[in-house]
Design a protein around this nucleic acid. Sequence first.
DNA 1: CGAGGTTATGCAAACGTGTGAGAAAATCCC
DNA 2: GGGATTTTCTCACACGTTTGCATAACCTCG
Lengths: 353, 353
Amino acid sequence: MPFCKRVQKGITDPVYRPTSIKDIARKANVSFSTVSRALQNSPLISRRTAEKIQKIARESGYRVSAVARGLVTQRTKTIGVVVTSIADPFVSEVVDGIEECCNDHGYSVILANSNADPDRERKVVQSFYERRVDGIVVTSSRVGALYIPLLSEMRVPIVLVNNQHPGEFVHSVMIENVQGSREATNHLIQLGHRRIAYLGDRFGHQSDTERFSGYRQALDGAALPFFPELVVHGDGKSEKAIAATEALLRLPEPPTAIFCYNDMTALGVLRALHARRLRVPADISVVGFDDLFIASYTDPPLTTVRQPKRRMGFLAMESLLQLMSGQNPSQAITVAAELVVRESSGPPRKAPK
Amino acid sequence: MPFCKRVQKGITDPVYRPTSIKDIARKANVSFSTVSRALQNSPLISRRTAEKIQKIARESGYRVSAVARGLVTQRTKTIGVVVTSIADPFVSEVVDGIEECCNDHGYSVILANSNADPDRERKVVQSFYERRVDGIVVTSSRVGALYIPLLSEMRVPIVLVNNQHPGEFVHSVMIENVQGSREATNHLIQLGHRRIAYLGDRFGHQSDTERFSGYRQALDGAALPFFPELVVHGDGKSEKAIAATEALLRLPEPPTAIFCYNDMTALGVLRALHARRLRVPADISVVGFDDLFIASYTDPPLTTVRQPKRRMGFLAMESLLQLMSGQNPSQAITVAAELVVRESSGPPRKAPK
DNA sequence: CGAGGTTATGCAAACGTGTGAGAAAATCCC
DNA sequence: GGGATTTTCTCACACGTTTGCATAACCTCG
């Protein structure tokens, strides 16, 4: 029903295509521009004909071609989302928020993995450009500076979520890393900890630097000494965190608490502690960052700093909508991190002297 | 550089657009059809002009408009992926596999959440149709029958992953539910368990029925009695599983092992057992299904049945590629499930009499 | 030098839609 | 009833490609 036989020029076999505006025009005995307007409820068309046309359109299962429309309007109602990997639980929640906002405003999401590979990330963005997306969101991009030439070429509005190169881009949504990790560290201090380790990401990444800085601020604020040997680095994954934890435990005076760069790191820490038969938090406390879904299912449930991931995606998309409509939204949106106290943090075994 | 000033009809302000094939034609002093062919490396164009044109295109940052191309070729090189929620860890891995295969073949993924709402799912599919996607993949759809009218309207190739209505659709990728849960149950039997509970999904779903059936087959195969009171139902989430576990533990003769419909259910079970201070697997064994990433981080790490999620997504996409190229691939692809033994399963406390 | 054959290029028609300009028809006003 | 106004619709172009066909340029051979 919604398909019309058409006979193409040289070809003898009729080819099936979706019904177009012209098919409807023929049936309704009007010009196809009238059909176009009628379907948009243009005031230029009388109620009577509009209704007649809409009825025919409905009956023949007509659906406008977004690609034809996109060609003439120069807007595809499409936004591109670049992620390192959609299988990353952090990322997928952000994308969930983006998608929701998109859906609210009639946009579709084109998704592409970069696999954290700068080359591939560039290719992905170029393919977005070929698709003429109206805007782009990039989550956790690590190739910040490379965008600059690309962007000046493309002139596509872009918003970054938790980018590692703040200041280099105009628009971004960022978590309050400093505040969040300060609160987490303060929490441990208030529980009575004095030797608190920081298990970071690869050295030099912006978010690692900021979270470390929050940790330092908390120590300084409580007038506690800073022990450089209590600062070690992983890579944001759990494997490396296991090794790093063991290094910490081998210290002559091991920490009584470990504040981790993120939850995946904390997972590795928990596992390492478990292997050593250390009890959490009785023997040692652990605090993470992110509040991944998994954090409430570890043993014990993980005390961590929540990033409102869906909301951050939603905000990024809202910001992008403003950009696309020609407004100039606030450049860097920062959202507050929230300490979630569960059961992996408690007072240290021995009271400090 | 890649943008050209154009003066539109009535409008005095020049408007910026991406450089088009025509801009290049002007610069190269050839017709735009020559440019089109040159950029496609058509043998009709001499090497010399082709190279000249390609150079100009490169220098002016030209990128072909996929939307214009899609209009004329009637193929958008785009596939639509419907998911219940991209934040679901199972789904996001499947999508990861789909995306990889798409990327290999020059397709882009349009993603949309259905939130498991049939109405929204229909709308999503219609919006895919308006975008003229070349094919559609739906993961974990629960609204199977509703597709039939939609599909006959749209004539878009479609492949379902783990759909709950096998047989109603032509093409699907399914996990071997029966085999997987039979192996899981056998594993428990071999460990010496005689009272094994099955904690299922909502009653009536296809995958639940099949996994239950594998459980029964294993019992029958070992000539073990089936105890109806050991079969309870949750909803695939961990909350309900907690209540269900408590019901099992209240039985006069509680099970020594619980086989769960999926890992999320197992998570709830572990939590409930933990709350009761029962040790796993010393006091009771737990086995899941899915092998979500989280399964190796629970305490103890979860014995479970692995679904090769990425591969299933990849296979679905390969199947779709075949459909789109006019071939008729095998209708229902089933992939084997693999038992992954970790530490949540062990011999029962007391040897069976 | 012209017929015939390549080779390289241009022309023009699509693809399906939006939209300004203007024609035709209907209505109104005096 | 004639002109002005409003309503309703059509014409025609544009969007940026691809591609069949026509044509121009060049070459080869008799």
